[in-house]
């Protein structure tokens, strides 16, 4: 079975629509979403509606959690805080209801799905290094864990000898005996130097994974953000993918 896994849409409807169009050509049976539907971008309601309609598993991200008023945005940086306060004012009642059914973590076959880290999902920590991965491999029993949150696509592989290595491949076939933590990147605000939307296709038959990049109407997304008076840096960073 081919499964699309996406994360960190961040209210970027143009990126999400382009991603969905690409997914439609990929012969996938299921789509899973790893959280952060809202925050930063200008289309939180439309993104939530689309995610709710097309995704099977839907998880909460830290921006969604704060948007629901479940956590104080004080720990956000100023721009994230500004945009989440705008989001809170913009969200429709139906959108809140949609998010109220998102999960914190889920399992699907041999996959563990979570937004931030499997160790403490609600602490919203970042899993960025080999050492972070080493600790987190102890927190889930499955062979594969898929995460988002950092907006940087990466594969961490736990080898049978206990060592963790980073695999920088756009397509990878799992090595028998190894376990994996895979960050699927971000649809709506990539930060790996590539401005194109990023998501992952996982194949449960041969345990292969493929990162896909999708270009989208970036200027349209930026214009909407300008119109909504969202912070300038959040608008300009879309073009640099940083």
């Amino acid at each position: 079975m081919r499964v699309a896994i996406l994360s960190d849409v961040h209210a970027n409807l143009e990126a999400l629509k382009a991603t969905v169009q690409d997914i439609e050509k990929q012969n996938v049976e299921k789509i899973h979403f790893l959280g952060d539907a809202v925050g930063y971008g200008a289309d939180p309601n439309a993104c939530l509606k689309l995610i709710n309609n097309i995704c099977d598993i839907k998880l909460l991200g830290n921006h969604d959690y704060v948007a629901l008023g479940l956590q104080n945005p004080l720990y956000f940086n100023q721009m994230a805080r500004e945009s989440i306060l705008w989001t809170q004012q913009t969200l429709k009642r139906k959108s809140i209801e949609i998010m109220s059914d998102f999960e914190m973590e889920e399992t699907f076959l041999d996959y563990h799905l979570v937004h931030a880290t499997p160790e403490n999902p609600q602490d919203w920590n970042y899993l960025l290094t080999v050492d972070d991965a080493q600790i987190n491999f102890k927190s889930f029993p499955q062979d594969f864990c898929f995460i988002g949150h950092s907006h940087i696509p990466v594969i961490f592989c736990l080898k049978p000898d206990g060592g963790v290595v980073v695999i920088n491949e756009t397509r990878h076939e799992a090595i028998p005996g190894c376990r994996y933590i895979i960050n699927v990147g971000s649809v709506g605000q990539p930060r790996d130097g590539n401005k194109d939307a990023c998501y992952l296709i996982a194949n449960t038959d041969d345990n292969s994974f493929e990162f896909r990049r999708v270009s989208y109407d970036l200027e349209k997304a930026q214009k909407k953000m300008e119109k909504a008076n969202l912070p300038k840096f959040l608008i300009s960073r879309l073009a640099s993918g940083q």
Partner: peptide, 17 residues
Amino acid sequence: AKFVHIRARGFMLSGIQ
């Protein structure tokens, strides 16, 4: 939902009701 502070039961209840 499993992750809420106080679990509640009921038909068609939301995860975070």
